[in-house]
């Protein structure tokens, strides 16, 4: 069941947007208001969409070529000069190639660098395992003081970008390649550290972040048709995570299913287990990429193959409810 207050913030439009596109558009808009914003990229600006910023503000856009380590450390240097660097590349490179630079140049000195990484998850599709970031949230979450955000649609992405431009400190934003349904309308509000319960029910709790939220919504609606009502939580703020929301829901339903386009090790699923294990021990089933690498295929094929499509979610809920 969708609560009345949530209905007001859900989009009625039948529209699809890739979160990377929403990011690029919002960054270009923010660049007008805030002259300290600069954008950095590694030869992927047309894919990460920072090209939209570059076109408007060529003097405040720095392409570093195919050199992610250099870009991240340079972003750190720019931030010490009072700039607000938005550094973009694919999530595989931001998290793994430049891991030590994110850790030592950015996170350790707690610098005001915004790493907005696109092409996360197996849902990028055909490029295959080398380009599918499935441990980026786990890596970034382990960095002390790093905020990790995984917006689920274009609207939420824009709100996230607005907020992190104001927030002082390092942030990692996990964005997606393929277009997905717009879930929220403009009246939706985002706060760092808060999740949002989109649907309400007592049988189980489904917690999703990022690309999978629209899939989890489909599943929850189907379950409702079958008489099974669930809590559906969109956990955009993977770190800091909304512990209160998770604990309250788990207390009510006694069963939690996490859904993410990421490894089940260390990402949203891991974070939820950490919260519940010490506060409200509850059975948690983690859907996402199990302990394996990605593969080539179409996004929808991969989402099914890796077991976090709507059918898999429905099956998991039905198998696990008492």
């Amino acid at each position: 069941m969708i609560p009345e207050n949530i209905k007001k913030i859900l989009s009625n439009e039948d529209k699809k947007v890739a979160t990377r596109k929403a990011y690029g558009e919002r960054l270009a808009e923010l660049g007008e208001k805030n002259k300290n914003i600069v954008a950095l990229d590694c030869d992927l600006s047309k894919s990460t969409m920072t090209a939209l910023f570059a076109r408007k503000f060529p003097d405040r856009f720095f392409n570093f070529g195919i050199a992610e380590s250099n870009m991240i450390s340079a972003a750190a240097g720019l931030s010490t000069m009072g700039k607000i660097p938005f550094a973009s590349t694919f999530a595989v490179f931001a998290s793994k190639r430049a891991c030590d630079q994110v850790s030592i140049s950015v996170a350790y000195p707690h610098l005001n660098v915004k790493i907005c990484a696109t092409h996360s998850g197996v849902s990028i599709g055909e490029d295959g395992a080398t380009h599918q970031a499935i441990i980026d949230a786990a890596i970034m979450r382990a960095m002390p003081g790093m905020v990790v955000l995984s917006p689920c649609d274009g609207t939420e992405t824009k709100k996230v970008i607005d907020r992190i431009a104001e927030y002082k400190g390092p942030c990692y934003v996990r964005l997606c390649r393929v277009a997905s349904p717009v879930i929220f309308n403009e009246s939706y509000n985002f706060e760092i550290g808060k999740g949002i319960k989109i649907m309400e029910g007592g049988s189980a709790t489904i917690i999703s972040a990022g690309f999978t939220t629209h899939i989890a919504m489909q599943a929850a609606r189907k379950l409702e048709e079958d008489g099974i009502e669930v809590d559906l939580i969109n956990m955009v703020s993977i770190k800091p995570i909304d512990s209160k929301l998770i604990i309250e829901s788990a207390k009510k339903t006694g069963l939690v299913i996490t859904v993410e386009d990421h490894s089940v090790i260390g990402g949203l699923g891991g974070a939820v287990c950490e919260v519940l294990s010490c506060n409200m021990p509850t059975k948690v089933v983690r859907l996402g990429v199990q302990d394996k690498f990605g593969s080539s295929g179409s996004p929808s094929e991969l989402v099914s193959a890796y077991g976090f499509d709507a059918a898999s979610i429905i099956k998991t809920v039905k198998e696990n409810i008492c």
């Binding site: 600069v38 405040r60 991240i72 450390s73």
Partner: peptide
């Protein structure tokens, strides 16, 4: 990493 950080600082100094 330091030389890269210095590159970022030099870019920032030029911008302002």
């Amino acid at each position: 990493q330091g030389l890269s950080c210095a590159v970022g600082m030099a870019l920032g100094a030029k911008l302002d």
